[in-house]
Design a binder for these strands. Sequence first.
RNA 1: GAUUCCGUAGCUCAGCAGGUAGAGCAUUACACUUUUAAUGUAAGGGUCCUGGGUUCGAAUCCCAGCGGGAUCACCA
Length: 510
Amino acid sequence: MSIQLSEQEVLRRQKLEELNKLGINAYPAEEFKVNASAEDIKENYERDKINYKNISLAGRVMSIRDMGKAAFAVIQDATSRIQIYVRKDDIAPNEDKSLYDVVWKKLIDIGDIIGVQGFVFTTKTGEISIHVTNFKLLSKALKPLPIVKTDEDGNSYDEVSDPEFRFRQRYVDLIINPHVRDTFRKRTRIFNSIREILNDNGLLEVETPILQSIPGGATARPFITHHNALNMPLYLRIANELYLKRLIVGGFDGVYEFAKDFRNEGMDRTHNPEFTMLEFYVAYKDYNWMMNFTERMLEKVVTDLYSTTEVTVGDKTIDFKAPFKRVTIYQAIKEHTGIDISNMDEAQLRDVCKQLNIHAEASMGKGKLIDEIFSAKCEGLYIQPTFITDYPVEMSPLTKKHRNNADLVERFELMINGKEIANAYSELNDPLDQRERFEEQVKLQERGDDEAMFIDHDFLRALEYGMPPTAGIGIGMDRLTMLLTNNVSIQEVLFFPQMKPEALNSAKEA
RNA sequence: GAUUCCGUAGCUCAGCAGGUAGAGCAUUACACUUUUAAUGUAAGGGUCCUGGGUUCGAAUCCCAGCGGGAUCACCA
């Protein structure tokens, strides 16, 4: 690495040498015992002052206001930020004032991680602060931290807004933008909340293969990799559905997995090549049960997160109070286009597409055409949580046929804020029907549909041993998180969204 | 993949009828022992994304590339 160092970087390296000369290890090994957090102090000091006379706290220096023989600084720990007050005569009570004049004033920078000991007090201006009696450098920062200042009205100045900077150096983004940390905490709370509900209902959390020899369970282009020892291609999973259903065959009544899935498709603000999908399957249930369960689950997730069922998303308020509205896909299309397509064949559907100005590929079958019409004319209109049900059989090769209509399947998608959040069905467990559906998919492949499914013979074999009637669902966790944290970009809810490599890696290390 | 906008100091940005760069914060020095976007005075800091071209002269104009955003296509 022969990167030109900036003035500030050179300076900080010099300070590091100074520290070494003074016998101060800028990266000490020993534990620094902490007995308070910034949040704890700010929340509890006022009514419990007795317990804040001897506190120890560690964090990153976020700002310094030097007043001559005393200084104020702001320390950020994992919970929050708190002001510290460092007075020369307090940290250096004897003749030797170098701890203040040299170490504190000259060698500590914004961005450094320090530990402080002292007592809590309230300043003249009413800010709860730590009066420092001793401090210790815990880690010296060699790069200058971008400074975001916030005034008393909450306006930010010089906020780092460049998405490239923020996503490539997420660690910096997390340090300086508290709302980013908040988003990721919420993401984890959403996952925990769901995990709790599923566990409470007796489902077993499982892990299934990411490397698969037949990518199944969804229609999407997979990533291909190669196993050297076996000398064979392997695919990164596009879904884990077929494996979870094998486990239902194996006798588990309920299984779930938060699965990283991979799809080799375009990237935009709702698509990352790797993303997280929750899938779960429950034996002896059907899609009606799953709708009931899903709406209760989401209501609880939102309540756990916000203590209310309402969530603000952009300029809208979305209410997750169960039950959610339910409407069949044919009803939805009829309602929003005035056209009843329930008895149409492929040719008639093509005419409808033409009439509605919807682009229809020659390779599209009946199911895909209906899906196009719904996507173009209906999907965006469902802002409040709505189950769209009873899809045509052609676009649902893993779904059980509808109990009352052989042209339909027992499937629903949950639409929220105009987007699909979940996809679920009464799982097809008739092995002969499943084989026929796979064969239909092969025909679609032959027509040029490069996303149609492969036949998974082992999965068929599993079904032939008998799978109980089962309800299953897939929920796009990234998109659910986007929705519940009011973010429009998937990059905002992934710590490390996919990016093209920086020149940093290729050029300078070679 | 297509269209479009963007890439100037550590950060946020200005500079563009072409004359080799500015501001605020950050940094450095000095002053200030309860400040809070602390303040005052002074100073330093830039392969203007990269590579070509036009020109006496390019951060500025043209071409190509790299990276990012937005919209569209594909999809979750």
